[in-house]
């Protein structure tokens, strides 16, 4: 089974800066990691490969330094890594990103399953997985906590608001996984070193014969017009004393709120 995992490199810290001209995020100079839940997607792919054979190819789109995230994925055990890096892709929103990733998957060719993390910690949209499935014209399964493959069919347990749903779809399909799906493995030093020397394939939009107008700012219908830090809510009253005194004062305050329905 040939599996593609889409990962995203995201800033590690909560320190984020913004380009005042373009309102795009400045990623240079900020330590970067693999988006945490993407590691669960990689782990899920590796487990499926262990059961069914085949290959795991990790792909990402980003600046040249996004290579680092791919190397981490290789250290975990992925077979191959491909980076789409093209200045024309800068500023891609989720629609443009799903276009570029779909073109990458098409160029890879025979793919049975595409895995993504549920959403990235920077954008928090969760829109690229479904967008990618739509671009490829294949089914999607979002929020998967368990998945198994049998006879070309994928069965997945999805975590929804207050219930689980078990869904069965034909492959190929796109699946987004949640954090509770598994515990991502930690690569050993030997694999980390090996991954450091591994070759990473780098493509440009031209290599994909992709339409540059569908990527980057040009291919993005949404436009960020303003970014700002959220307002801080002011601190309130301190309640001090023994536990008994604190409980007494608090119980009184709650009673005065007149909401303790009981």
């Amino acid at each position: 089974m040939n599996i593609v995992v889409c990962i995203k490199q995201v800033p590690e810290t909560t320190e984020v800066r913004v380009d005042p001209e373009t309102n795009a995020l400045i990623r240079e100079g900020v330590a970067s990691i693999i988006n945490p839940v993407d590691e669960n997607a990689i782990e899920a792919a590796l487990q499926l490969r262990e059961g069914h054979g085949g290959t795991v190819t990790v792909i990402t789109m980003g600046p040249p330094q996004a290579e680092e995230a791919l190397r981490q994925a290789l250290a975990m055990g992925a077979d191959e890594a491909i980076l789409l890096s093209d200045p024309a892709s800068r500023g891609s929103d989720t629609l443009a990103t799903s276009y570029s990733l779909a073109e990458m998957v098409r160029k890879i060719g025979e793919v049975d399953l595409i895995l993504c993390g549920k959403q990235a910690i920077d954008g928090d949209t969760g829109q690229v997985g479904p967008g990618l499935a739509e671009r490829l014209g294949i089914p999607q399964v979002t929020f998967a906590i368990e998945l198994s493959v049998e006879d070309g069919k994928l069965r997945a347990k999805r975590v929804l608001d207050d219930f689980f749903e078990v869904l069965e779809v034909k492959l190929p399909a796109v699946v987004t996984v949640v954090k509770q799906a598994n515990d991502p493995r930690h690569p050993g030093m030997r694999n980390v070193l090996k991954a450091k020397r591994a070759e990473i394939t780098t493509w440009t939009l031209a290599d994909l014969e992709a339409d540059p107008k569908q990527s980057g700012f040009d291919g993005s219908p949404t436009q960020v017009i303003r970014v700002w830090p959220p307002e801080k809510r002011g601190g309130g009253k301190k309640i001090e004393g023994t536990s008994e005194e604190v409980a007494e004062e608090l119980a009184q305050a709650i009673k005065e709120m007149d909401i303790a329905a009981g």
């Binding site: 929103d93 629609l95 979002t142």
Partner: peptide, 23 residues
Amino acid sequence: ATPQGRDLAPRVAARLSAGLTAD
């Protein structure tokens, strides 16, 4: 922006090439 909405909206937006803002 429930699980259902976040499954459906991006699929429809991609089909229509519409802009979609999450959450």
